[in-house]
Design a protein around this nucleic acid. Structure first.
Length: 813
DNA sequence: ATAGGGTTAG
């Protein structure tokens, strides 16, 4: 950039004698032009500065007449050129002036602002400082706008200080810029103070502060200010309405929303694209897609944002086919689409787990060169995870050139939800190495990872992190922590947190606690929480009853479960869902009430899903009701279900009935349907490491020791009267081989490793991804007695506490 | 002669 000021800047700052200024004073003093010429050019510029040809010719005449150093004209030229986007020429005009003063500098800054050259604005601002050029309210305005966009807090706060010292902030124009900067830099309180001190507040000032509250998610406060503004007799502008519609939609205020719709028509804004688009968005957020559609169809002009808003509204309300139809209309209309459109469509794929469409859309993102769009790329990562394609999600993530907290968090949540909690924790370390600051969503996803891993140490450290950042007492975070402590075996920690947080009266918090008690077999405590909810007038939801019924099932509380199932409908008007039926069937069939469970399934008001049948089938297997088992199995096979666990259970049933042909048939079906058995694994946390063992896994560095210990333990437990139960080994091999396979089960390997690596007398905690088999359950009971250690096993369903040859659950099931 | 506020998507 040809800027003489820039080249000279350093020496100027040092010497404080701007040499060029001294030598260039000449034109101003010698070219004594009569004023009428200047007025002539001024009026020419007023009339013809909007086309480049005219502007160039006027500019040439100005130079010929030697009046280019008149700031009056230079300022107009700078504005005209920058309005046309010719910033370099504007800068040249600026540089030609021998005595740049405030207004000329301001005009140049304004040009940079209009052309989004924010870094140049700040350069110029610093330059003004080094030339001792006076700063005005206008200067502060432009410089603050640059700081707001560049997120430059340091210079921004300096400008705010200058503005306040000079009282510029009292002016509505500067005040609103100050408020905007303070809001975007997170100082909402300071913004409010500035706002309150302003002697006169026009509608833009109100818009700034209201917009600030909306921006920070303080919707109720935004609405309060809006009403206050009306109370002051200020007529809302279309900007006010756009902000307040957003606040209304986000906070779910249906009545106010309808009211605002009326206001918009009354204020004559019924043809404003911005306002109507905001209205469409509000109705979508309120779940009223009918009204959103009506408003959208009534719009006389629409832009791409309007289309994106309605498409996104449809997706958010689960109307995927409708969103696609609208997308087709959009393409046919010739408007085209952008990254925002694709984000919504890809979300639609996530919702319906439509990997195929997701891939097609991903391909079109690459074709259109939109990969560099951060939001879009993050959506793609999320989509792959929601479709269960963790590998492709990771690949998409690795391809990204730019990532922010949300990208990283999407990765962490995705990995954790797809069963890669350990990888998520490792990724978090990488995130920290790259200095990306975690937010509360990130931390909650980490709490979930620790819960899945049963890693108390890491869980506690995330808890500490939450406390340090004052996030710990948010209900979402507390619920996650309660779940984590429960899953890490510390039910009393969970209890403590819950008792502290109960005053928040949150249903999700209660559900977490009920779930935790259930997992630990404390059914009566779980029901106790429900009692407390009733006493405090808290409304239970669907999940509450799923948790309660699960808790009853794990504690064998048949009567309590049945009565809860009844009062769900009767007292709370919650229709039992498929999930609730599955829980009740599970409860009944585990307890041996197979006929009653079967009758319940038959009288369900809708077709039982595979999970209901699975619960019944599991009961048939436990209580060895082969006939009913086969009957249910036949039904299940016809459902073409994709859960490999069911096929394993089916072949179990057939194996126990010694129907080897059927066993082979089911196995073949599994292969044909492309299902693999989920590999069983167990893990244990020792020191800072988590050690994972798969069944028959001899890859651990300490394998020799583990193997020797297991051999010794086998001799000991056999001496105590243990008899192997090989019924869970489905492979058609001889008895000694089956026993050998049993001793390779992952939970035994993890326990043996735990015994080897932890101090004598301490308790051992292991976690298994699937359910513990009956033989491992028996062996662990014996081991706990022999080694005099408490052994805690958390499996896919619940906790088993083994102490001195006994287990907390009365029988294995 | 130079000036401020707003809508969609992770």
């Amino acid at each position: 950039m040809p800027s003489s000021y820039f080249h000279l800047r350093d020496s100027i700052v040092k010497s404080r004698i701007p040499s060029r200024l001294i030598y260039n004073i000449a034109p101003l003093t010698t070219c004594q032009q009569p004023l009428p010429i200047i007025y002539k050019f001024s009026s020419l510029l007023n009339q013809f500065s909007n086309t480049l040809i005219h502007l160039n010719s006027i500019h040439a005449q100005i130079i010929r007449n030697c009046v280019f150093d008149y700031h009056f004209l230079a300022t107009k030229l700078v504005k005209a050129y920058s309005d046309l986007g010719f910033l370099t020429v504007a800068r040249h005009v600026f540089d030609q002036c021998s005595h740049p003063e405030t207004i000329l500098c301001n005009a140049m800054m304004a040009g940079y602002v209009r052309n989004r050259q924010y870094a140049e604005v700040l350069h110029l601002f610093k330059l003004m400082g080094s030339y001792d050029i006076e700063i005005s309210g206008y200067t502060c305005n432009f410089a603050l706008k640059a700081c707001t966009n560049l997120l430059d807090n340091e210079i921004g706060m300096e400008i705010v200080r200058i503005a306040v010292e000079n009282g510029f902030h009292l002016h509505p124009f500067v005040g609103s810029s100050v408020i905007n900067f303070l809001v975007k830099s997170g100082n909402l309180d300071d913004a409010k103070v500035v706002f309150n001190r302003m002697p006169e507040r026009d509608v833009v000032c109100w818009n700034s502060i209201i917009g600030g509250y909306v921006h920070q998610g303080h919707f109720k406060e935004a609405i309060r200010m809006f009403l206050e503004m009306i109370g002051c007799g200020i007529r809302p502008s279309h900007v006010t309405m756009a902000s307040i519609l957003k606040a209304c939609g986000e906070s779910g205020l249906r009545k106010l929303g309808r009211c605002l719709h009326g206001c918009i028509l009354a204020l004559g804004m019924g043809d404003n694209v911005f306002v109507l688009t905001s209205l469409v968005d509000m109705y979508s957020k309120l779940g009223d897609t009918g009204s959103a559609t009506l408003v959208f169809n009534s719009m006389c002009s629409r832009n791409l944002v309007s289309w994106n808003t309605i498409i996104s509204g449809y997706v958010q309300n689960g109307m995927i086919p409708e969103s696609l139809a609208l997308f087709n209309r959009l393409v046919q209309s010739g408007i085209g689409f952008d990254s925002g459109t694709l984000v919504s469509l890809i979300q639609g794929c996530s919702q319906t787990s439509n990997l195929e469409n997701g891939k097609i859309l991903h391909a079109s993102v690459i074709r259109k060169g939109l990969e560099s769009n951060l939001v879009l790329s993050t959506t793609i990562v999320d989509m792959y995870f929601k479709c269960g394609a963790a590998n492709q999600a990771t690949t998409a993530f690795r391809r990204m050139e730019e990532r922010n907290v949300i990208t990283w968090t999407a990765m962490l949540v995705g990995l954790s939800q797809n069963g890669y909690a350990m990888d998520a924790l490792m990724l978090f370390c990488q995130m920290q190495e790259e200095n990306v600051a975690a937010n509360t969503v990130t931390l909650v996803s980490l709490v979930h990872c620790c819960a899945n891993l049963g890693s108390l140490k890491k869980g506690k450290s995330v808890h500490a992190h939450l406390i340090r950042h004052c996030y710990a007492y948010d209900v979402v975070n507390m619920s996650a922590l309660i779940d984590m402590y429960a899953k890490c075996g510390k039910i009393h920690y969970a209890e403590k947190l819950f008792n502290n947080g109960f005053s928040l009266k949150d249903d999700v918090l209660c559900n977490s606690m009920i779930m935790g008690y259930g997992m630990h077999g404390h059914g009566h405590h779980a029901i106790g929480v429900y009692g407390r909810m009733m006493k405090e007038g808290l409304k239970p939801n669907q999940t509450t009853f799923v948790s309660l019924l699960t808790a009853c099932s794990h504690s064998g509380l048949v009567e309590e479960g049945k009565s809860l199932f009844l009062c769900m409908k009767r007292d709370h008007n919650i229709k039992p869902s498929d999930n609730h039926y599955a829980c009740l069937v599970d409860l009944l069939s585990r307890a041996g009430h197979l006929e009653e469970a079967n009758a319940l399934v038959k009288q369900m008001p809708f077709e039982p899903s595979s999970s209901v049948l699975e619960a019944l089938l599991s009961g048939c297997r436990i209580h060895k009701n082969i006939n009913m088992g086969i009957e249910i199995a036949d039904k299940l096979l016809s459902l073409d279900y994709l859960n490999s666990g069911i096929y394993i259970m089916l072949s179990n049933i057939y194996a126990e009935a010694r129907q080897w042909d059927s066993v082979n048939y089911v196995r073949g079906l599994m292969r044909k349907r492309g299902l693999k058995k989920t590999p069983a694994y167990s893990f244990i946390e020792v020191g800072n490491q988590i050690h994972t063992f798969f069944a028959g896994d001899d890859s651990h560095p300490k394998w020799d020791y583990i193997n020797q210990l297991l051999e010794n333990l086998r001799l000991e437990v056999e001496a105590c009267g243990y008899v192997p139960d090989t019924s869970c080994i489905l492979r058609n091999v001889n008895e000694p081989m089956k026993i050998k396979l049993l001793w390779g089960h992952s939970e035994r390997l993890a326990i043996a490793f735990g015994l080897l690596s932890t101090p004598y007398g301490s308790s051992i905690k292991i976690t298994k991804n699937l359910r513990v088999c009956v033989d491992c359950h028996t062996v662990t009971r014996y081991i706990s007695k022999i080694v005099k250690r408490e052994i805690i096993v958390r499996d896919a369903n619940r906790f088993h506490h083994f102490v001195n040859g006994e287990c907390s659950c009365n029988d294995y099931w």
